[in-house]
Amino acid sequence: MSSSTSTTGRRIVVLGAGYAGLSAAKGAGRHRTVTLVAPEERLLHRIRQHEAAAGRGRDWPALGDLARGRRIEHLRARAVEIDPDGHKVLLDDGTTLGYDTLVHALGSRTAWHGVPGAVEHAHPVERAAEVRRLIREADHPGTLAVVGGGATGIELATELAEAHPGWTVRIVAAGQVGGIYSPKGRAHIRRVLDRLGVAVHEDATVTEVTPDGLRTTAGPVEADLTVWAASMEPHPLAAEAGLAVDGRGRALVDDHLRSLSHPDIHVIGDAAAVTVPGVGTLRMGCATALPQGRYVGRLLAGRTSKPFSFRYTAQCLSLGRRDGLLQLVHADDSMKPTVLTGTAGRLVKAGIVGAVLSALK
């Protein structure tokens, strides 16, 4: 490839092939030529990483197959620098891409929060295959600690405990495990954790990760393997490029998901601080990333000119292969008392996950 790439007409470059980036590229690629920059060969189906960690995952569709029928060129590279003034993106292979419109959809990554030993001794949820390998290669079952009491940590702890009953699984949270859910939702999560034998450590902020466990504000927690699912932070490239960002580093955008400081750059997914009237600033996650990507795809294809709109309806959790939780929420994501649990919750969750993959095909 030459040192620069251009397309006829307006040059559209999409950075990232997660739920937001891929859906934006596919929408725009109906009528426009799009360059999609992402190092992955296959879809990183992030909402099923807990299954992959437990050895129950499978190979997800190739990006080339998902892009079939669209005017999309996939470059297997990683964006390392954005030059907004020059309308250029530098890739890790030395390529420089010019653009007229850029879509930043690089998402988020594990936030270590400067905890000593975390980077050296804990394994982030993004490296699910690594967790799976370490469990399989262990000489004998041991103790596994999942750090994080939110949705990702709960799904990991329940999936790992069910898949590997010989292991002792612990979940360690700075606050209450499942604290964001309604009382009925939290009670069900706790019943499932108890049924699966998961030891719960609440109000235990991790202060250090060691080769043999954790040090927390509530005392030490022994562990042969630590998986970190405590929180995520936005990809830093937007802030590094000088885009206006909030206190968390998420790019500030307008009601058409354009950067407030650089309107020729759309920022979507976990990397964007998207505020919707009557709803508030959207949380990170597939539930918000996919609609943003579809919206920008339609916008760039000239199929809409309306502002982005969104409202929440539910949150859902996998709790192993036999159980699940569907938590109904208000439009602003605050909890309603109604939940579906057990088989019903599991089936609804499975249907939602299936619908996400179908939407990308």
Score class of each variant (00 low, 15 high):
156 L>T: 09
161 A>K: 09
77 A>Y: 09
88 K>Y: 00
151 A>T: 09
75 L>T: 01
161 A>L: 12
167 W>H: 15
125 V>K: 06
72 I>N: 11
154 I>D: 01
100 D>V: 02
110 T>K: 10
97 L>K: 03
129 A>S: 12
156 L>H: 14
73 E>V: 08
156 L>F: 15
90 L>P: 00
71 R>T: 12
152 T>V: 15
87 H>E: 07
85 D>H: 10
109 R>V: 08
135 I>E: 07
73 E>P: 02
136 R>T: 15
169 V>T: 12
103 V>M: 07
144 L>F: 11
79 A>N: 11
151 A>G: 06
114 G>P: 01
129 A>G: 15
101 T>P: 06
145 A>W: 04
147 V>I: 13
165 P>M: 04
84 P>M: 02
93 D>G: 15
153 G>C: 05
155 E>S: 12
111 A>D: 14
111 A>L: 03
174 A>F: 05
95 T>Q: 14
174 A>E: 14
120 E>F: 01
122 A>G: 09
72 I>Q: 11
69 G>H: 13
161 A>M: 13
70 R>W: 09
110 T>Y: 04
112 W>A: 00
138 A>D: 13
174 A>T: 09
107 G>L: 09
119 V>D: 11
90 L>G: 09
97 L>S: 01
152 T>M: 10
131 V>P: 02
124 P>G: 03
144 L>R: 06
135 I>W: 08
124 P>M: 00
83 D>L: 00
131 V>N: 07
155 E>A: 13
106 L>V: 15
157 A>W: 08
171 I>D: 03
142 G>L: 04
98 G>Q: 13
75 L>M: 02
102 L>D: 06
94 G>Y: 08
70 R>N: 10
106 L>G: 04
102 L>G: 06
151 A>C: 08
116 P>W: 03
129 A>L: 15
170 R>S: 15
134 L>Q: 14
77 A>T: 05
124 P>S: 00
133 R>V: 05
88 K>S: 00
